[in-house]
Design a protein around this nucleic acid. Sequence first.
DNA 1: CGTCTTGCGTTGGTGGGACCAACAGTCTAC
DNA 2: GTAGACTGTTGGTCCCACCAACGCAAGACG
Lengths: 163, 163
Amino acid sequence: MSPSPTPAPEEPAPARLRAIPSRLLAGATLVADRLVGERLAAEGAHKWHFAVLLTLAEAGPASQAGLSRRTGIHRSDMVAVLNDLGDAGCVRRDPDPADRRRNVITLTATGRRRLERLDALIREAQDELLAPLDPAERAELTRLLTALADHHGPAHPGQDEES
Amino acid sequence: MSPSPTPAPEEPAPARLRAIPSRLLAGATLVADRLVGERLAAEGAHKWHFAVLLTLAEAGPASQAGLSRRTGIHRSDMVAVLNDLGDAGCVRRDPDPADRRRNVITLTATGRRRLERLDALIREAQDELLAPLDPAERAELTRLLTALADHHGPAHPGQDEES
DNA sequence: CGTCTTGCGTTGGTGGGACCAACAGTCTAC
DNA sequence: GTAGACTGTTGGTCCCACCAACGCAAGACG
């Protein structure tokens, strides 16, 4: 038997374990979140800040609850995010004259610039994440994941859903 | 304009947000972990229990550190898992006569039966997770995710790595 | 032999993320 | 006008991955 040149004992995960989709997903998500998180943290930002800024840019001004539904960020967590963005001047938070319960969140010019910066970082992170995949494979992966997302509705749990 | 039969205002996430791979991954992982977690919890089990049992079945007896490396479960978390499995009689934990630092973990007949049961649940969960995908798509998704896993080594962070 | 480094199992703790419960204020529909 | 639903906010829970440090044992090397 050819003596393996690698002196490494190498304790790999069993094949059957490595082939489980939910495990693969978890692993990939861990890497992805790290990649994204590190880059955004270097800029003093968070996943959520980016999501909110992008949503405002794409869908226009909205209430906090509206933003919460569109981004998937929980109502209660949204507060801190908007505090940060407000303090940084990326966003204005005005009481809605038409409905005094709500705040109207509006993207400022500063916010738009910040979004551009963060967007570059996000794209950079995606690129590193998907490095081993060619463009066609990246598109296919995105397609398959989108199919999963569409099938299992935006939120299965008891999250505030209509009747 | 055809009055949409759905009276819903429907506040969807912006397209650009929905197309970000790291976000899609996170969403899918959330669903997957829920699906798996619920099923295993109904049996009083955990993700980790399954991973350890399967690893023992595939790779034979091992030390706790060995199991930790193969499963990706942290050394410190492994303790509780093995306590559970030991208490349930799924596993024996004997001091290694050849190296008194280690424990040799061995799968029992009970453990093997439990593994079969949990394996069925896991497969069930994967099936529900991948419901919207046909067999070819499932294989492709697994392949792409495996490519990601292989590229970004088993563990990027400062986890116990050789020099 | 002694020292020094490395690995092992174990304990307790940290930080982040998703989520829930409850509340006061406000709107909407009956 | 009263009941029910929605909004923003606070404070807390639970789970997960991870770290720090310890006591002990083994291997390497003078």
